[in-house]
Structure formats: C-alpha cells, structure tokens
Design a protein around this nucleic acid. Structure first.
Length: 271
DNA sequence: ATACCGACCTGTCAGC
DNA sequence: TGCTGACAGGTCGGTA
C-alpha cells in the first residue's frame, strides 16, 4: 500500500495522537510473526516506555522511545499495513498483529492482511538513530540525485524503485513523476541527461509534496491513523489508467510489466 | 557488485 | 452463484 506520502501521513498522524504517552502493555499475535525481533523480547522492551516522537524515514515509521540506550521501534507497513490509534472499546479488525495499550486507555494497533509489513527494534549506534537504506527524495540535492543514476545499466523505473538509491519511492509515484516529465519508464537510467534528471527530481518532489498535502493515495485499503482515506488517487494521471485516454493528448495509456511491476505510461507524451 | 525473478500472504474483481 | 486466474502500493533471498 504505502509509499512515502502515505507513510508520512500515517507517521504524522500517529505522532500527533500518541506522542508523550507511555506504553502500558503490549500484545503481539499471529503466526508466522511479522517480527524481526522475537515477539516476547519485543514486548518486554516496549512495555513501560514513553513514546517521545514518531516520524518517517523512507517508507519506515520510526518511534523514538525514552530511557537510556533505548532502541527505536521501526514499523514498515508493507503493502497492506495500517497503524491505527483507536479507543480500547473499538472492535479489533481482522488481521491485527500488534496492540500497544497506552496509558490514556487508547490503543495503537498494527493491522496487515497480507503480512508484508514488518516490526523491528533498532539499536542506536553512536547515539545516531535509524538512517534508512538510501537518500531521502524530498531533501536530496540535484548533485546527489544525478550522481545516483550515472552509469546505471537499468531502466529509470527500476532505479527509482531501488530503495538503496532513493528510499520512499514506490510504484505509484515512480509512474506519476515519469509521466509528468515526459520520460518513458523503459529508458536506461544512465543515459538520461543531467537536465532530464534535474527535472525528474523536481517532479518527484512536487508530486509527493502534493500527495502529502492531500493525505496520500487510497488505492485499495490505505487509511491514516484515524482510518481516514487520502485523496491523491484522484490526481493520478497514468497509474492504474491502462487503456484509458491520456489526460494531455488522448492517446491510450499503456500498461506493461517492468522490474516485475505494473508500469503505466503514455506512449505519445513520454519519449 | 549488480540485476532479475519468484516467493511471501490475503483479498478483490473480471470472466467464464 | 461459484469457481479460477490475474492482479495489488513492497521487500528479500537465490541465481545469473
């Protein structure tokens, strides 16, 4: 489900609702567990901690916890993960894998039907926290951005999805940003000009900032921390519009499979 | 080192 | 109505 704008929306929403609260008790269920750390160890470490801050790095949601040498709690939503702040009396959805009971009586719940999501504890190294695998798309400089793709013998679509280069870009925003700059997803990343890459960086940042402002894209079951849908899916110009007319020129939008993912583009507008 | 491909899961929808 | 297959926003491990 979630890419950078959706994860940002969820992280901000959770931060506003649970920042400063203490974790009273922890329930971790389901098998096989979507946990990198063993569930009993994770529950033990989380219990009693105060949540100091919740924020996004790449597609990861990072929980800063109080206490000396406290690890960070990392949540990855996978494709269908949700992180909800609910009243304890609210019914527990199917596929709930974790419940953190907070001192205010509310619960932080992790729900994930497809179980592609992951929960992990991350030790701080030299007091520096979780860094993520790649560069942050919203703040990367033009210089850094263009150097990421230099000499790369793969398609620009695959390169955009590679989390070790940029983290946070997923299938929707890769397709949407490439459409907005008129670049075909099949183009070799290393063959793009510096000028094209500079425009791609701007388009990626604009489309993601716009999506954050609209609460993310709700394509199937994405919702924020209150269970509210985003609206950016109404702004999609190519994603999931295969066979429909291009909004700019009217040509039928093509859908192909690239890097194992559904890929959408306008054969007229994108060269 | 780098890149492709299938696997991991469940749910939904189109087509028969 | 009910079955089957294709597809879904992500990542990982094995293989080339």
């Amino acid at each position: 489900m979630p890419e950078l704008p959706e994860v940002e929306t969820v992280a901000n929403g959770v931060n506003q609702r649970v920042r400063g609260e203490r974790i009273e008790s922890v329930w971790l269920g389901s098998k096989p567990e979507p946990f990198k750390t063993g569930p009993s160890e994770m529950a033990k470490i989380l219990t009693g901690r105060r949540i100091e801050r919740v924020y996004r790095i790449g597609k990861h949601i990072v929980f800063d916890l109080d206490g000396n040498d406290a690890p960070q709690w990392i949540v990855h939503l996978g494709m269908t993960g949700r992180l909800l702040v609910s009243a304890a009396s609210a019914s527990v959805p199917l596929h709930t894998h974790a419940i953190l009971k907070l001192t205010t009586g509310r619960e932080l719940r992790f729900v994930d039907p497809r179980r592609f999501g992951r929960l992990a504890l991350q030790k701080r190294v030299n007091s520096s926290g979780f860094q993520g695998p790649g560069h942050e798309p919203l703040t990367i400089s033009i210089e850094q951005f263009t150097s990421l793709f230099r000499g790369r013998k793969t398609t620009i679509k695959a390169a955009l999805l590679n989390q070790k280069l940029l983290h946070g870009v997923g299938n929707i925003y890769a397709d949407e940003s490439l459409f907005r700059v008129g670049i075909r997803p099949t183009r070799m990343a290393g063959r793009l000009t510096r000028e094209q890459l500079a425009r791609l960086r701007s388009a990626l940042q604009e489309v993601m900032q716009h999506a954050i402002a609209m609460g993310g894209s709700s394509v199937s079951d994405y919702v924020d921390a209150d269970g509210v849908k985003g609206y950016f899916q109404l702004e999609h110009r190519v994603y999931m519009r295969g066979g429909q007319p291009c909004l700019v020129c009217g040509t039928s939008i093509r859908r192909i499979v690239l890097a194992g993912r559904g890929t959408h583009f306008c054969p007229m507008c994108q060269k």
